[in-house]
Design a protein around this nucleic acid. Structure first.
Length: 870
DNA sequence: GTACCGCATGGTT
DNA sequence: TAACCATGCGGTA
């Protein structure tokens, strides 16, 4: 530049290309890339040709640094050079993409999402195919007087930023925050301003929505719509810009620069001018296109049927029968976005040539589907698509169902908090005819050109992958009532504890049990599993229900036998949680409760078992390969990795491969079936592998620890407080829970019958509950379980009694004998590891967490009565 | 006593 | 904090 300038006075310049230095004259110089000063580089013809063909950098900078490859096509891009700035885009996910690929990806999306009859598509020649990557030389014209890296403008990491800037330019609103406040809030805040627009739309009927959009006077309408909804359809913005452009200098907007054109005109509508050469506009097209592309995606994040999914693409995408109303969708909450499938559209449209415009959908709430016969309509939907009503009485609204049957509902509203609450009255017959219930979804569409409203439906149980519920769960309102969630209630229950985030056993228990407690206080009848579906483990649902159940809404409180069962399953699952490798867990004590805190998401591992021989002594350890699920016999003192597979079976080379057959053993054959079903393990001890990693091979859950210490005759010294405890798996040194505060079997002071210490109270209380449960279950189990056949449970239990322990401290597992006891002895019972007696019956989170844990522990312990020294 | 109507309340976003 | 909306609830037929 300097050299060029220096020679300017003489009328001769040298080529801006430092590797050229050719003298150029007025006749031979060509404008190259834009400089930071706003001027343009001046090139000789040869260099310009290279520049114009897009290979300038390859020609002159091939040895320079800063070369990268297009993530899509692999084409080399000189990202470290001002010359190449316009020819690539920084990807949000990292990396770069050449404009050709950007264009292609945009075209694919654009072709999918664009509604054919867009207003300006007829006004503007669609020249999106002319995507002159080579023409980036003209980008400079877009930024007079300032240096702006295009990527700063277009390649922001967030799509919203794209929109942000774009809208801020389009509407000349420097404070773009106003525009970018988000679809919801901004629309709300601007709603009053745009009310006139809405009134126009609403008063003119549903059809006029589209008409407005397509009308000649759409400039104001769209513009206001945009102003009212900054996140609104990119199409609106597009049209606005195109409109503006079509009526004026395409390169100059109201601000007097070309940014409006630059920002707003999407590729399909680009190159609209005839006066300026294509390249002048096209220099911004690539960026524009990307912005539009990403913007489009942003505008329709869940338009599964319209963009992302080919299988569910709406009919109009293929046969032109249906189309979405992008403007309208943009200002609706996502949960109301219509997601009508081909099938549904086909059903609605039949064989006619009508155009179906899905308007919105709504998941039926309990009250919607109830007998009241009122379907609450989302306000914005009602105002956008249904006729304007000024009186609360509203007006009758004809609606056709998917079968062509016509219904008449009363469309009305109630004044509510200075607003309106729109309802459709008289929907009960229709809903009943569709056999809809809470949780199902009704869809509203419009058939054009008749303008007929169509009400379709989608059964919740039929929703693929429960996306709909996800939406409802995510959005809260949509599926927040107990009956709403009927079809997937189990999912809702199962999820929260499964979230493998930083947490701990007890806190999870608390949460879990807290939910249970709250649910139990509510309507159990609402909780019915649809179609008798068994509870499922669904990770995807985990996520959504995690957020779902985090809600405090009492509407979500549900209880059922199924839920309890699933919670138990979760309780089991907790034991499978292991700290992530290299991230040992911390244990913190909060108000006397131990919390295991994972620094990283814990790993779900498979359990290990200690198999006992008929005499009750542990003779083998079994672990399950996490790949092939085969059981392998391990030494008792084996130390396992966090994720144990057959290949880790160094103790048995023959079975150190998943291909090796599983060892046939009576232990394992009895072990395996015991893992499934509601019956808990029989004669196996469930061990948390994590505990083993503490190098305590004998560590077994809770009382198992104590019992087996006795069984194994470990009259060893007590673990010091500084040593890893051998107590409850979830306990660590410093734990003050009831288990940890008491001495191991045979140690410490003995408790008298009248002792009312915390431990004894716990035992008393716990025993009562336990025995009731045991009594209930024992009859079932005795009919099924006979391990070992020659050693009935009672004998086995007795066999487990440590000779070290005082008789009165032993647990006698004989249910019959226990049943006869009216007052449980504090010294002839089992210990509830974490129970706080004074809270057990309270529906507090803590109490319930304890209960939840105990249920699981009980289930484990039921056939494994153990000793305690209370 | 029941069903309906209309508004109020409060949870959720 | 405001808006939305699911549902509760009192009044009335």
């Amino acid at each position: 530049m300097s050299s060029s300038s220096a020679m300017a006075t003489s009328g001769r310049k040298i080529c801006f290309n430092t590797q050229c230095k050719k003298v150029i004259t007025e006749q031979t110089r060509r404008k190259g890339w834009k400089l930071r000063s706003g001027d343009h580089s001046e090139l000789c013809e040869r260099c310009f040709s290279s520049f114009d063909h897009g290979n300038f950098c390859e020609t002159f900078h091939s040895d320079a640094a800063g070369w990268r490859k297009c993530e899509s096509c692999g084409k080399r891009i000189h990202c470290g050079c001002i010359v190449s700035i316009p020819v690539y885009m920084l990807l949000d996910v990292g990396g770069v993409e050449c404009m050709a690929c950007v264009r292609n990806s945009y075209s694919a999306v654009s072709n999918q999402i664009r509604s054919p009859p867009m207003a300006l598509s007829t006004q503007l020649p669609e020249r999106s195919k002319e995507f002159p990557v080579k023409s980036w030389n003209q980008v400079s014209g877009s930024f007079p007087g300032q240096w702006r890296h295009p990527t700063n403008i277009w390649n922001s990491s967030s799509i919203q930023s794209d929109l942000h800037q774009r809208l801020s330019y389009e509407f000349d609103r420097p404070n773009a925050e106003r525009l970018m406040a988000g679809a919801r809030s901004s629309f709300s805040s601007q709603e009053k301003k745009s009310e006139d627009i809405h009134e126009r739309i609403a008063s003119s009927g549903p059809n006029h929505v589209a008409q407005d959009m397509n009308g000649e006077n759409n400039l104001i309408t769209v513009r206001k719509g945009m102003a009212s909804d900054p996140s609104s359809s990119c199409f609106s913005g597009v049209k606005f810009e195109a409109h503006q452009i079509s009526h004026g200098n395409p390169s100059v907007n109201s601000k007097g620069d070309s940014r409006s054109l630059l920002m707003g005109l999407p590729a399909p509508f680009s190159s609209i001018n005839g006066t300026n050469d294509t390249t002048q506009v096209s220099t911004t097209q690539p960026k524009r296109q990307v912005a539009s592309s990403t913007l489009s995606k942003q505008c329709y994040p869940n338009s599964l049927s319209s963009i992302d999914s080919t299988s569910e693409s709406p009919a109009h995408m293929r046969n032109g029968k249906g189309r979405f109303d992008p403007r309208a969708r943009s200002h609706l909450l996502p949960r109301y976005w219509p997601r009508i499938t081909d099938q549904e559209l086909q059903q609605i449209s039949g064989d006619s040539n009508s155009v179906i415009t899905p308007l919105f959908e709504k998941m039926l709430s309990a009250s919607d589907a109830g007998r009241i016969g009122r379907l609450v309509l989302p306000k914005k939907c009602a105002e956008a698509y249904f006729p304007l009503i000024s009186q609360p009485e509203g007006l009758p609204l004809k609606m056709q169902d998917a079968n062509g049957k016509e219904w008449v509902f009363q469309f009305r509203f109630w004044p509510n908090n200075n607003s309106r609450m729109y309802v459709l009255e008289g929907v009960t017959p229709c809903i009943q005819s569709m056999q809809l219930q809470a949780g199902d979804t009704v869809t509203f569409s419009r058939i054009d050109p008749e303008g007929k409203l169509v009400m379709g439906f989608r059964k919740a149980a039929n929703v693929s992958n429960n996306e709909q519920d996800f939406q409802a769960a995510k959005d809260g309102n949509g599926g927040s009532t107990p009956s709403d969630v009927k079809p997937n209630t189990v999912d809702y229950i199962a999820i929260p504890p499964l979230l493998p985030h930083k947490g701990n056993t007890e806190s999870r228990n608390q949460t879990n049990a807290a939910d249970k407690a709250s649910w139990s206080k509510n309507d159990k009848s609402e909780f019915i599993q649809k179609d008798g579906c068994a509870p499922k483990f669904d990770i995807a649902l985990c996520r959504r229900k995690g957020s779902f159940l985090s809600s405090k809404s009492k509407r979500l409180r549900i209880e059922s036998e199924e839920s309890i069962e699933l919670k138990l399953t979760w309780e089991e699952a907790q034991v499978l949680l292991r700290p992530a490798p290299n991230y040992p867990s911390n244990v913190v004590s909060v108000e006397g409760h131990e919390f295991e805190e994972y620094k990283e998401a814990p790993v779900l591992g498979l359990p290990m078992y200690f198999a006992k021989n008929p005499e009750g002594s542990i003779n083998n350890r079994w672990a399950q390969c996490e790949n092939c699920l085969k059981w392998r016999r391990l030494p008792l003192d084996s130390h396992l990795n966090h994720r144990w597979t057959c290949s880790d079976n160094k103790w048995d080379p023959k079975r150190s491969s998943c291909s090796a057959v599983q060892e046939i053993s009576a232990e394992i054959t009895h072990l395996l079936p015991s893992r499934t079903g509601s019956c808990k393990r029989s004669n196996v001890i469930f061990e948390n592998e994590n505990e083993h990693e503490n190098e305590n091979p004998g560590v077994i859950d809770g009382l198992d620890t104590l019992a087996n210490l006795a069984i194994l005759g470990e009259g060893k010294s007590l673990p010091s407080s500084s040593q890893p405890t051998t107590k409850h798996p979830r306990h660590r040194p410093g734990c003050t829970c009831i288990v940890c505060i008491q001495p191991p079997s045979g140690k410490g002071p003995k408790h008298k019958q009248t002792c009312d210490c915390n431990v004894c109270l716990t035992v008393k209380r716990r025993f009562r509950t336990l025995m009731l449960r045991r009594e209930k279950r024992q009859s079932e189990k005795e009919a099924v379980i006979s391990w070992p056949p020659s050693y009935p449970l009672r004998q086995h239990s007795v066999a487990n009694i440590s000779p070290q322990m005082p008789v009165e401290n032993n647990v006698v597992a004989d249910v019959e004998s226990e049943r006869k006891r009216t007052a449980p002895s504090p010294i002839k019972t089992q210990i509830d590891l974490n129970l706080q007696p004074e809270r057990e019956e309270e529906p507090s989170p803590v109490a319930n967490s304890v209960s939840a844990l105990n249920i699981f522990q009980d289930s484990v312990e039921l056939e494994q009565p153990k000793h305690c020294n209370a």
